[in-house]
């Protein structure tokens, strides 16, 4: 068990494999039975839906097919409306790559029924946001909706 040599000069470290070591990760992600319907409702009807577990007294938003608590099948679909309350929030000063945002962005965890939607909060400044504040989802125009969580453009104070 011997390991007797080491590099002692940074300039000797010439070999990095490779400098631009990237590969394009691209794949599809199947949203599933519940996802098809949830995102379909967002796209076609600008409607946020949840599924109710009657034994746990919980309405999951986004809707899903099974209860993660009691493992029951969920088939009671509800229109949960477009309003919610701020459960938590943060002000993001940097982008994903760490670069500074031109303007800080408020990201909120919005409680809708018993679920949490994480999304941008516009229409107020950071100092005005409070936990418990009522907010409303603003949808993109129908022609721009694609069946994505971004069909909700953002939330805004009610």
């Amino acid at each position: 068990m011997a390991f007797l040599e080491r590099s002692t000069k940074n300039t000797e470290n010439r070999y990095w494999y490779p400098e631009e070591n990237t590969f394009p990760v691209s794949n599809r992600y199947t949203t599933g039975v519940a996802g098809q319907r949830f995102f379909g409702e967002l796209k076609d009807n600008a409607r946020i839906t949840g599924t109710r577990c009657h034994s746990c007294q919980v309405t999951f938003v986004p809707a899903r097919m099974f209860c993660e608590r009691c493992f029951a099948r969920l088939d009671d679909w509800l229109d949960v409306g477009s309003e919610g309350t701020v459960f938590s929030y943060t002000v993001a000063y940097v982008n994903r790559d760490g670069s500074a945002k031109p303007e800080p962005a408020i990201i909120a965890a919005v409680r809708v029924a018993d679920g949490i939607l994480v999304h941008r909060l516009l229409g107020c400044n950071a100092g005005e946001v409070t936990i418990g504040m009522k907010v409303q989802a603003v949808f993109r125009p129908e022609a721009e909706r694609t069946g994505s969580i971004l069909d909700i453009s953002h939330f805004r104070p009610v």
Binding site: P62, I107, V118, I149, L150
Partner: peptide, 16 residues
């Protein structure tokens, strides 16, 4: 489908 599309740095979750 619910978090990644926001395109934000995931450390925002720690902020929340």
């Amino acid at each position: 489908v619910t978090v990644r599309p926001l395109g934000e740095n995931p450390y925002f979750i720690a902020g929340l």
